[in-house]
Design a protein around this nucleic acid. Sequence first.
DNA 1: TAGATTGTTAATCGATTAACAATC
DNA 2: TAGATTGTTAATCGATTAACAATC
Lengths: 222, 222
Amino acid sequence: MTKRNSKVSTAVIRRLPRYYRHLTELQRKGVVRISSSALGKSMGLTASQIRQDLFCFGGFGQQGYGYKVDLLREEIGEILGISRGHTAVMVGAGNLGRALMENFEFGSSGFRLLAAFDVRPDTVGRTIGGAPVLHVDGLEDFLAKNQVDVGLLTVPRCAAQSVGERLVAGGVAGIWNFTNGEVSFPGSDVVVENVHFSDSLLTLSYMISQRSDAQTSGKEPQ
Amino acid sequence: MTKRNSKVSTAVIRRLPRYYRHLTELQRKGVVRISSSALGKSMGLTASQIRQDLFCFGGFGQQGYGYKVDLLREEIGEILGISRGHTAVMVGAGNLGRALMENFEFGSSGFRLLAAFDVRPDTVGRTIGGAPVLHVDGLEDFLAKNQVDVGLLTVPRCAAQSVGERLVAGGVAGIWNFTNGEVSFPGSDVVVENVHFSDSLLTLSYMISQRSDAQTSGKEPQ
DNA sequence: TAGATTGTTAATCGATTAACAATC
DNA sequence: TAGATTGTTAATCGATTAACAATC
């Protein structure tokens, strides 16, 4: 039960949501118990790595038995902060913003989307996916009156930095950035999480290019 | 000019799109030349790491001078496969799919979106962002008649695996998966690139939770 | 109890950083 | 030329893997 939380590497942190997702799936399938080796096999990780990862946070298993799926899922959810009642606002209710409002289950990640902000008259005033779309002029006021943990950037790239600064000034702890540009807030300890679609596609582009190179030149027969 | 391409680590590969993005931005600003240390400072990397990364692919710089921005950008673009004329089809023209069709610049990553596929009668037949929406029944036929490199999964999670299998059977080299679930194609050498929104948000959730813990307990005054 | 599997330390591997000769 | 900065090898650091005693 040792807790040696001090400085968990980002490599480990990025795996936690995957664990959570896989455990949720296992629970849905009715699996009650799982060993590190079985979980590793299904996730493409080594049993050692899973035990080492979990060891960063404490002992959640039972020797000779493995891990109780529901309990481990619960613990990892707790580590991720799912039960902290986090809140978010979105700025930019264009196509992508609306898609997230309508489809993305904020609740599954422990978030509540309080409102979206936009400038377009045909969008302001509507309610999408349960959240109201307000005029962006009211952003500062809203942030002052509500505890908002995360600001979601789905504005056009050119507006990203300035809107981000308004969110940071308003006191958000994190920025979830969907614009293809970089945003940065020096002097602030706000956490920025980027979702760069084009980085993702270019990585895929590289990998399929390699593949066809290998085929063409007859290398790597395996 | 040594090329020692053999087995470039994924850590390096994932940084290439970032280099490309930053160099594009520098070029747009009219910067002609940059040193590894200046680029490192602006990207939050060490000069050493940048030179080491580029060394995987060859010598693109000039001693005593640095790197020509346009040339380095061009070279990295080439490595990423941007000029290979990659093609893609999308399956699932719901909110998210439409948002990508209308907003995402496939061309900037060297891709052409040939078509989207859906089942809804009010969507099939339309043209969105320059690409036609066809009925998913015609997917196999389309894949047989066109060279398609990447299949884009924007269907509901429950359909992801089966639609993915149809794309793989049709011969795509890569799957760009936007569904929140996992897809896998054992026995195939297709490359899967996941965009897991919830993993991203949960990572952010963890990081802001840590931040508030530190504040509350007075730890890490820094 | 015997078998299984964790928690935890030690060993290995790979990625990042440092150093410096080459050279523009 | 002197100064700057790369290309490239060596050293360090951190993450993954292996090992095994603890124990359910």
